[in-house]
Design a protein around this nucleic acid. Structure first.
Lengths: 248, 248
DNA sequence: CGGTTACCTGTAACATCTTACAGTTACGCG
DNA sequence: CGCGTAACTGTAAGATGTTACAGGTAACCG
């Protein structure tokens, strides 16, 4: 029961209720798009029960193990791009970075040695602070892959969005939606200024309220965010987009 | 100089450096996709210097004013969907919600009265907590619009991602600084545990080093990040993806 | 009117972070 | 080997954050 159009893939994705289903659908889409390998990885920051990282992999097992063993996740420039950006990234375009950093250079060499010569990755970010990535890869070089990559991109972006939803549905038993946490204006302001490196006293001057009140708001924010202190509140509020400090 | 393919649209988007350019490109894409109206709206998270909301509108001016006047932003179920989800939404599919809520029902009626009978909206979320939406609309009903909507969706999703980047570039004075800042393994670890709400003492226990050393690493990280204290270091490291705290 | 929410304030003890001082050890690289 | 870098450690004063105590004001809404 192979799918023959994007809509069919989206349709079966929304009905998937096991990781195996999702794996098969990804496999199908990968074949449909004329690629050889795929991988989906997500960082789910929000839930009590879920694993922090989720993978659905159609990569060679050997490479997958090597990747984990060597902690490539923290080196991979494609992963770094997807963590920051919402734009698809052709692996070819991370080549410039390659030259500067020895560790990255070695990693890229290793990627090529494992016959993942060309590929493209599609990031997804959600309002819940989840960060995911779907990659399609092949063993031919960038030039030969270009047409295929161009053709697959629009479909794959849409596919990736639905894929992420499907994964979330399968893994989330009782997802805690960060987006539902509402901070009051004052709570956000106090937290924001703290994230900007201001002390309680400084924030109090800025907002023209007492130090005690600043502490009060930060505490309330921390309670709502279900964290233990100011630092963690900042981390969580930033990572879920509740506040967005500027850096000068 | 009309664009005739998705790639061309993406290309000109990445070169746009004024709102007018972006407006024209959106207009072109709208025509290209055989729709009549478009609107892009973004919520840039609480920030000190930037406006909170950004619009690029190809809607009739009359409707735009009415929308703002009546504070439809807080009623519009499509906006609500896009704030939560990463999936495109066909306006037809919010109809079920219509029946429950009187205010929403009135709004939907008003939408139709203004000749926006069918449409589809594409959300984007970023790791920085931005939330944006690009909508395409037409004056024919859902049934007639179906083929057009299906055809446009994959392209529009990709277009929307690039559109959002373009808008951000135009509005943000300091474009996303691709962080070349490298933290050492220990610096990251110490900062990460701090972001997890651990105290210096706790982190020292976890990493099996002295408290003094933890402080030392955090300080070095803060210096590299060019910030004044631990809190700001966490904010910056999280927002640039250098560390990714988990929440339990 | 009563209930709810956001917002605001003070004091005090204690915990934690920041900053200044002054070093040592291990390792890779040219 | 000399050099740079990462990693590591100690002490101590003073600044800042946390927690627990106990409240008050104003706006909105059914």
């Amino acid at each position: 029961m192979a799918q023959t159009s994007l809509n069919e893939f989206i349709d079966v994705l929304s009905k998937a209720n096991a990781v195996e289903d999702i794996h098969e659908i990804c496999s199908g889409f990968c074949y449909f798009s004329e690629f050889e390998h795929f991988i989906y990885g997500a960082r789910m920051p929000t839930s009590l029960t879920q694993p922090s990282f989720i993978y659905v992999s159609g990569y060679p097992g050997e490479w997958r193990e090597r990747y984990l063993e060597r902690n490539y996740l923290s080196i991979d420039p494609v992963v770094a791009h997807c963590a920051r950006s919402s734009l698809p990234i052709n692996w070819r375009d991370v080549a410039p970075l390659e030259k500067k950093d020895k560790v990255v250079r070695e990693f890229m060499g290793d990627v090529r040695d494992h016959n993942l010569k060309s590929g493209i990755s599609f990031p997804v970010h959600t309002s819940r602070g989840e960060s995911a990535m779907f990659s399609l890869a092949a063993s031919d070089d960038h030039k030969k892959a270009k047409a295929r990559i161009d053709a697959a991109s629009p479909n794959a972006v849409l596919f990736t969005a639905y894929l992420h939803e499907a994964v979330r549905k399968v893994f989330a038993k009782a997802p805690l939606s960060v987006s539902q946490i509402k901070l009051t204006a004052r709570e956000k302001q106090c937290l924001l200024w703290a994230a900007e490196g201001k002390t309680t006293w400084e924030t109090a001057r800025i907002l023209n309220i007492s130090e005690r009140t600043v502490i009060f708001h930060v505490q309330n924010a921390a309670e709502k965010l279900n964290v233990v202190n100011r630092q963690q509140a900042i981390a969580r509020a930033v990572s879920t987009g509740l506040i967005a400090p500027q850096f000068n």
